[in-house]
Design a protein around this nucleic acid. Structure first.
Length: 261
DNA sequence: ATGCCTTACTATGTAAGA
């Protein structure tokens, strides 16, 4: 059966992690990839290495922080549909880019962390979330296949972390964050991993410190939200957990879904 | 409760991440 594999990976520095990224691309062989936390200005995006690995790319970077990109195998047409989330012309952080690939609108996002909370960073997180929800509602009205993909920086429920009580003072697990995520999903989106694995502890991030990965003390914050026009095609999903154990690796692991044709 | 790691930057410390 032909399947399309779509992945998301918060690389935590696309240049610093380039060997890990390329190794994972070759091993996992996804058709489409959303990257977050490039931590690279546009002119330093490692296009050549990514092209040599078999992909074309669009990216929205900035110096030192943030940055998002969409990669697609060279056989696909990758058409950028926009960058930057509407709703705040003063927002200069590079956290959103979208592209049409093979009839699917791929929306790659890096939602603000929001710590320390409460505070101005948490206010920015909630404001950004509100803008994302408005955008998402407009996308649903198009009645086309859309996927919101990326690092949402939200632990949706207790099942999505190893130990809920250790996250209660964190912006990723604040009631406002969880409510905003639930409200977004309730617009009509399908949380791909949770839908396929309703009761399973699945993690996509493990702290560098406290020996978190060895203890499997992780959280699930990287998500795929599918519009109704594509949710029925969801076939498989998973986390490439072993990548988190590699040398010079990101604190996130790549996450992927497979869609039936 | 923290920032135990790790990144980028014009840097030998600071800010940020989650």
């Amino acid at each position: 059966m032909f399947c399309m594999k779509i992945a998301t990976y918060n690389v935590n520095g696309v240049n610093g992690r380039l060997p890990v990224l390329i190794r994972w691309l070759q091993q996992s062989n996804p058709d489409i990839v959303c990257l977050q936390e490039l931590k690279s200005p546009n002119e330093k995006f490692p296009l050549q290495a990514i092209e040599e690995a078999g992909y074309k790319a669009i990216w929205h970077g900035q110096k030192a922080w943030n940055g998002v990109a969409i990669l697609a195998k060279k056989k696909y047409d990758l058409k950028e549909m926009g960058r930057g989330l509407p709703g705040d012309p003063l927002d200069i952080q590079s956290r959103y880019i979208e592209a049409m690939v093979n009839g699917i609108l791929i929306c790659c996002l890096y939602l603000p962390n929001g710590n320390p909370a409460p505070g101005p960073k948490f206010d920015y997180k909630l404001a950004w979330f509100k803008r994302l929800s408005s955008k998402a509602r407009a996308l649903l009205k198009k009645n086309i296949p859309v996927i919101l993909i990326g690092d949402f920086n939200v632990i949706p429920t207790d099942l999505d972390c190893h130990k809920p009580e250790s996250w209660v003072n964190d912006a990723l697990f604040f009631p406002e964050s969880k409510k905003a995520f639930k409200k977004l999903v309730d617009q009509g989106w399908t949380d791909a991993l949770r839908t396929l694995y309703p009761d399973k502890k699945i993690f996509t991030f493990w702290d560098y410190f406290r020996n978190a990965f060895a203890r499997d003390a992780g959280i699930r914050i990287d998500h795929f939200l599918l519009s109704p026009q594509i949710a029925g095609k969801l076939y498989k999903a998973g986390v490439d957990k072993e990548v988190r154990s590699w040398e010079k690796t990101s604190d996130h692991a790549p996450v992927w879904i497979q869609l039936k044709k």
